[in-house]
Write a protein that binds this DNA or RNA. Sequence first.
RNA 1: GGGUGGUUAGCUCAGCUGGGAGAGCAACUGGUUUACACCCAGUAGGUCGGGGGUUCGAGCCCCUCACCACCCACCA
Length: 877
Amino acid sequence: MLNKTYNPQDIETKWYEASEKAGAFACDPSSDKTPYTIMMPPPNVTGSLHMGHALTFTLQDVLIRYNRMNGKDALWQPGMDHAGIATQMVVERQLAAKDINRRDLGREAFVEKIWEWKAESGGMIEHQQRHLGASADWERSRFTMDDGLSEAVRRVFVKLHKDGLIYRDKRLVNWDPKLLTAISDLEVEQKEQTGKMWQLHYPIEGEEGRFITVATTRPETMLGDMAVAVHPEDERYADLVGKHVLLPLVGRLIPIVADSYSDPEKGTGAVKITPAHDFNDFEVGKRHDLELLNIFDQHAALNENVPEAYQGLDRFVAREKILADLEALGLLGEITDNQMTVPHGDRSGVVIEPWLMDQWYVDAAQLAIPAIKAVEEGRTRFVPERWSKTYFEWMRNIQPWCVSRQLWWGHRIPAWYGPDGTPFIELDEATAQEAANAHYGEAVSLVQDEDVLDTWFSSALWPFSTIGWPEDTAELKRYYPGDVLVTGFDIIFFWVARMMMMSMHFMDGEVPFKDVYIHALVRDEKGQKMSKSKGNVLDPLDLTAQYGADALRFTLTAMAAQGRDLKLSINRIESYRNFATKIWNAARFLEFNELSGTTDAGFDMASANLPVNRWIISKLGDASAQVSAALEAYRFNEAADAIYQFIWNSYCDWYLEFIKPVLKDSEETRQTAVAVLRAALHILHPMMPFITEELNEKIFGADEMLITSSWPTIPQHDDDSQIDFVIDVITEIRTMRAEMNVPLSAKPDLLIRGANPAQQKVLSDMDSSVQKLGRLSSVVMQADDMPKQSARSSLGAVDIALPLAGILDFEAEEARLRKEIKATEAEIDKIARKLGNEGFIAKAPEAVVEENKRRLAEEQARADGLTKALSRLQSEG
RNA sequence: GGGUGGUUAGCUCAGCUGGGAGAGCAACUGGUUUACACCCAGUAGGUCGGGGGUUCGAGCCCCUCACCACCCACCA
């Protein structure tokens, strides 16, 4: 016997383990089925499951399970990302607690520590994914730093270098002075701040008492100034161009140059140029051949290139001292508040400094060309389509990608330097050594590049590196390209774009995935980002513990339509938990009626004759088709709605209620009740894997798990004749009702659950089938003999029963009917009151006729309009 | 500065190519009748942000205004 309510905790683990043990998660490269591939975005090895993960993995799992059931050989390729900076920080923090610094430890020992940490604590997220029901092929799980993937990374690096698409360059980078590494543009977060803008007066050389005034938000950079720029057409400064200023505090003579970068409208129209510490100034410096003077060390403290008084000072300390010193000299001008955005490291949170150094760059603009084309040509399709605009926007303006990081955790750059600094980029040290020896004509000692690669470099290879590349494996042939990539819009640039670029280059121009489904990000119910500091984090595992994984999964699926933000609320989850309970109880109902264990093996739904059975089967067919269509179009919410409404409204509210009186006697009905619910469990399974497995076994005694079973085939009934019949009957009923002066609102529950004998009589006449409904007039006659109240109820029920019997879309028909009735009721009431009567009067039919005439006229007008439009179109050709 | 999305019931949101406005929750009324109160039956609630246009017909297309988000770039 089933318990009274569904208790998810009792069964989830059991079914998950059973499915995995049965090998249901594994793909089968030797199978002759069509492959279906989803590359799971690898979560960070440091990660733990948050709501965003829960959403993305649920949607992927729904697709995987659905396709698996539809005869595909499904590969959901899981794995984890080594997450360079994030992981290094975690381990550093742990060591710091023991008062150990990574530098004391040394590189090798530190990296060893990280591997140890990974072995112990890394990958917690996989367990959490399992709780959620993720049916990934865990046996094939990959790690971005495992041997195979590391090999792929080296290959790619070397090849890109040989192709001239990776190069070393001395440029300004975004330097994170806390993490002591360069970061890419994407890892810089612009933060809105109120800062100050200071005006500085620079004395003009040879013109005693004359100054040029510049404005800056970073006064400390003035120590690195190499020029002052004014606009070539700015008359205020025309006579100064070519002259020099004496840089205060430093005493360096620097030129005043004309450059259109300077905007006469902004500030004072004169701008200080610090080529080594500002991206724009760097460009100006190039044009005017200015020296690049680096004034910071790696911690962004001032270095030996500044006057001794400032050396070693932190940039912000130096700022104050410089301002004070300038003020003392009378060279400090106006100070104003200034609204500005300041670049911060997205990991460290500190202010980023543009810093001049050698780094490795990927020529992204070149790689982007085929990647853009692939999307333009629709070989890869974004869903929703508008995200392709975002993709194009970025790809068409893409900057060189700085891929080197001054970290220890990551893929070491395969570059070795000879004694004179010549780099040898090869797959391994031995090959580099050979190349170097050949180059120098003698054996030399090489030093490997200290840096590692950006984490995203290795994840960019994910679509092919995980299935064997660079080896030409069977998996690579079979599962590449993937069918769909499912991810959030926040990593379109970081990841999607880069996978596109790398895949196009290394997979002979074949796209990595056919579709990219971009889903929302999960927010709390107020639309706030979930964060620990706000205390609004909903932990998916807490929720699965409380409401069940199925309820959480279904909630996320049903809410997946939302544009950018998915505002998750508890009461939504509750309502889908209730849905699980509802199904549970429908199953209990079958059990009570001794239908549990009944198999439908010998029962063919197509053979059903009773209208009520034909009707529910037809509704089931609709639901199945809707779910399929919706999932294939990534309209997850529609899939969830369709099966929800079928089970709750059609099956539970109507069908089960309606068959109660006949269930004992009608074997066909018993079989149908079972067959339909079983099929519904199949359809629901991708969204609610656990409860469906449990009921499939407990109630239906199925041997085969749903996860390995096939999507149900529902017979289609040809029902046109029935529809005509029903329409006739409905018309008749309406007339009779009016003749009998009964109120028109329906209370079907009174009848269906019928209490009094007269009602039960009506029901028993009706329930057995459409043939009996043919004796409609007798039913109505009986109703006529009943007390008023009963008659009303009976008629209400008949209204509902008829379309049911006719396998019509009775809900829509019913809604229409009720609306119509309501309108006429008001009309009738009015007349009744005029005549001094209570309730309804015999004139009702006329009112109904009038109303119908009016509606007919409306319809006619509409039809005329259509005809008119049509003929106009025709005449226009 | 460039771009994207949003504005539909009290709340959170669906509404796919233009053809009689929907769901969940909340509210209200009635109901424990042999699956389910995590329930059933029913009711109420909308100038689809404002204005203009196209069309026989607009929540949907075009123009415009307002407000709210987000992304990118930059800021002397």
